[in-house]
Design a protein around this nucleic acid. Structure first.
Lengths: 190, 190
DNA sequence: TGAATTGTACCGAATGTTCGGTATATTGAC
DNA sequence: GTCAATATACCGAACATTCGGTACAATTCA
């Protein structure tokens, strides 16, 4: 990290990057200190309740990002559905660095995450699912089909991230996203 | 664990269950000791190189299971393709306990697992992918479509496991498997 | 100045690991 | 067959290290 921002967005972002790559148990305070350039005391100054506090901050930060950059734009009926969908795809690609970055959801569900955190993540997932469902209904899909499509879309995201990590094939994630793009266009022309 | 088996299959199976549920960093020797009923020093008797040795044994064991119970049956042209596919689905469901058990692949990719382990897992994945591709080609799908379908199938497995863990909805995994069944039958009747 | 921030030193607990030793089963020589 | 020698499985107690976390003085910055 270069310099600390007056708000600690940059700090949280750095923590986020470590947690998503090492998981909770795999993330040590020493590592956080090393990567952020802050001493342990400084980290504990920012997060008095310690490691779990840092994770909570990260999860909350990510939740905000998702709502602002993914869910809200999806529900904004001022632009066309296809535009909203492709915008989301672009946002997702950036968020996961074209599949090179893990999903915090996946990472934290290993081992048992705290109930509070799990609930927050579950809520985010449901919100995203609902937004996707609504979008597809908007383009004329039946309720039934819509929810199934939305669920499968999110499943494919998580699965593609796992497989890409495994194979080190950098195109797995992008290929799936392109496939989803095509699928959505089929919805439009039917 | 009840009593030690003369071979240590039962032991490894117990270790497997812990690693897949807690990840590598989240798995402690104390926990392994507790669950297996063996003292820590006894575990080191069986696996002199320690924790990583235990993981290697588990990964090797799982690899064998996959080849014997999934890949070999898939390639066995003596039974019908649809039968082989549905048998595989049944095996998978059992292996993942209807989606309640994690995939070791997913769990270990956090942090960096040892190269040797990663290579073994990657090979298993590729073997499974190839077997699926071959099966779908056998029922008349084009090479191109076949590889894409196979890849997506494995992606959906991993993704469904992640989402089911997140939502605690016990039908996510099974629903996706049923969907894949239907998809495969469409291949047959086309 | 005074308050926010950081550096240094430290702690108890938990981590993975090793050691010395025991009990039982298996083997080998006589 | 007998009895020593070996091999295997296991255990309790300690090992060195690292963990997350704390206390407090030094520093920075307003």
């Amino acid at each position: 990290m270069a310099q600390q921002a007056s708000d600690n967005t940059m700090l949280i972002d750095a923590l986020f990057d470590i947690f998503r790559n090492h998981g909770y148990e795999g993330t040590t305070i020493s590592l956080l200190s090393e990567v952020t350039g802050l001493q342990k005391s400084s980290l504990y100054h920012h997060f008095p309740a310690g490691k779990e506090d840092m994770l909570k901050a990260v999860v909350g930060y990510v939740s905000l990002q998702i709502h602002q950059n993914i869910i809200a734009p999806l529900l904004n009926t001022q632009s066309k559905p296809e535009k909203r969908f492709s915008n989301m795809i672009a946002t997702i690609k950036a968020f996961y660095n074209d599949g090179r970055k893990n999903c915090l959801l996946n990472v934290l569900n290993l081992g048992e995450a705290k109930a509070e955190i799990k609930k927050l993540q579950n809520d985010d997932y449901c919100a995203w699912l609902d937004a996707l469902t609504q979008l597809s209904i908007e383009v004329g899909i039946s309720q039934q089909e819509a929810t199934e499509w939305a669920e499968r879309f999110l499943i494919v995201i998580e699965g593609a991230l796992v497989i890409q990590r495994l194979t080190s094939n950098k195109q797995v994630f992008e290929k799936q996203m392109e496939y989803e793009q095509k699928q959505f266009h089929k919805f439009l022309n039917q």
